[in-house]
Design a protein around this nucleic acid. Structure first.
Lengths: 232, 232
DNA sequence: GAAATAGTGTCTCTTAGACACTATTTC
DNA sequence: GAAATAGTGTCTAAGAGACACTATTTC
């Protein structure tokens, strides 16, 4: 009874509608903020993620870059897919399938496009249900990948202090880190190099500026970690 | 000159074709193997990943489960998205967009569906270019997530020896692990519990069988790891 | 007995975190 | 000087890897 039709025939491909939905994240005033766009300019205020359908022949990341620029007025420092969403949760354009993409950009006071605003992740307005799910997934993905890829550096300008960098890690991880340990680990990683510049920020000793400059990987692979499972 | 049209209008949503492409992975004879289906039964042998378009109203994971069952003849133990692919690489059904999904299943001698076969990841036949990319991405994702989620247990039957488990980790990570360290870390993680059963496998001392039974999380969060970045 | 596999005890070296300190700035 | 922030030296405790061992099976 294990007989089934072999897969030698090409399955029929149906037409669906596709959207690319972008979660643009940036540090703003000691929190992570997402960029939302106003969707009901006349009546009650409504917000959604910036999104669009990809243009014919346009790649998903290319579409995400274009969509980000259309709301941020600048190019994001990093784009990363966070998943495809095809569940019943409503999409503002009624797309059957959404590809969620997270974009990271340093804090910038530069003017946003009209109708776009930053909202702290802790205080988002109501969003279309699928957008809410994409935001949640994006923050989870960013937190999970923060020590697998240099995400944190994409939330900072090219030159930054080590306290800036630690602050970004603390934002992303949602907990405080130990200063001496953080610097020791960073030193051992050869990911940053000091510059000749220093920055004085109100009172306190000025801090040296560093830049992201990853050097050769140490082949040091360490033991299996069983204690990082995100859920049982 | 920063004036752009506000995002208050719904962008037009175009019609595209969508496929779900599944990388079914299972341990086979000391390697990881992927399940492929024959696509040219008459003439020259050609292989591809099992795939299909989602049915109307069917979720992506539901589609992946159905597609997996159609080739494996059984339900996979775990499904996980690995990304959306919309680049120019050709898809066998000419889908504009593919959602790649990895399915994990324990080693089973059970009969496959006609036309389906296991291939070691190290010796895959030529695949449609997009399928090749999805397989590569799937293996990368699995290797990256192996110590964030209990993937390894999904490649084993409900009862397994600690040597079995270590072997799976070594397959997934592509390197040998230290036996005593592995067991110490596993012990500390409260992820498995011993059963009363033992298995004798040819010569050598019989091994105790364990089952996956995660208990309460220790809140132990450890330091930032800068040394796991996958690329500069 | 030899060979093979399972499982453990102990040592060392690395390293995360705590603590305490020094250094340099503004007020 | 006080307050604030930057940056460092040392101790401790946890844990990964090496090594060497014991335990239990088949041949």
């Amino acid at each position: 009874m294990r007989e089934r039709p072999p897969h030698s025939m090409k399955p029929a491909v149906r037409k669906t509608t596709l959207a690319v939905d972008v979660v643009v994240l940036s540090p703003q005033a000691d929190t992570l903020a997402a960029l939302l766009v106003r969707t009901a300019p006349g009546g009650r205020e409504r917000w959604s993620l910036p999104w669009d359908a990809p243009l014919p022949g346009e790649g998903l990341e290319d579409a995400a870059a274009r969509i980000t620029e259309g709301a941020l007025g600048a190019t994001p420092a990093l784009l990363e897919q966070v998943g495809a969403f095809a569940d019943v949760r409503r999409h503002p354009g009624d797309a059957d399938v959404s590809v969620g993409i997270v974009a990271l950009t340093p804090h910038a006071e530069s003017a946003l496009v009209a109708g776009a605003e930053w909202f702290s992740l802790a205080a988002l307005p109501p969003l279309p249900p699928r957008h809410r799910a994409i935001v949640d997934r994006a923050t989870t993905v960013v937190r999970q990948r923060v020590d697998q890829s240099p995400l944190a550096f994409r939330l900072l300008p090219p030159m930054f202090t080590l306290s800036d960098l630690q602050g970004i890690y603390e934002l992303l991880l949602g907990r405080r880190l130990h200063k001496a340990s953080f610097r020791r680990a960073l030193q051992a990683s050869y990911l940053v190099e000091p510059t000749d510049e220093w920055r004085s920020e109100g009172r306190g000793r000025p801090a040296q500026l560093f830049r992201y400059a990853p050097r050769k990987r140490r082949g040091a692979r360490r033991g299996v970690r069983f204690d990082l499972f995100t859920d049982g």
